[in-house]
Amino acid sequence: MATETTASTASACVGPNGSAIGMPQLCGDWVWNQVFWLVLALVAIYFVLTRVALPRIAAILAERQGTITSDLAKAEELKAQAEEAEKAYEKALADARVEAGKIAEQTRAEIRAQVDEAQAKADADIAAKTAESEKQIQEIRASALANVEAVAKDTAEALVAALGVSADKVTVDAAVDKRIEGQR
């Protein structure tokens, strides 16, 4: 076989026209070449993977997992914070409402008190004025009565004098008083 291979045909498995004789897969001439380069390629891939690629990808995946986990935790926390804030807001709102009610009530009470006070004062003023007026009327009436008495006594004395009857002043006054007493 070796004698048949010419310089141009590199192997016993290749014919002189360059095409394969039989299955190239079964050609023994090439086996060790393939094995050598295969082992080299596998070792190269193995080292690239174990030294660089696989640790890097594992780190990336772990980092991503960590980021996702921490993000979820952060989201949970933020949600709790939001709920707390909402609760606080609602509580503030309710408080404000209660406070407003209280203030309104207080103001109302104050105003009512003021009104009551003013009314009481006005009533008192009216009462005082009324009392004073009554007193004045009383006084006027009293003085009027006194005047009437005096006029009556004077008139009676004059009449008695005119009639020519002498009568002392004291007797006339007493008689007039008696008459007035009877009139009342």
Partner: peptide
Amino acid sequence: HPMDQFIVKPLFGDGAVHMFTVTNVTLWM
């Protein structure tokens, strides 16, 4: 020539294929 595609040949020149010859196997691997 369906099997010609499987022929192992040296990448440079055409000598015999030895264990350490740089061949098309080397290239594609």
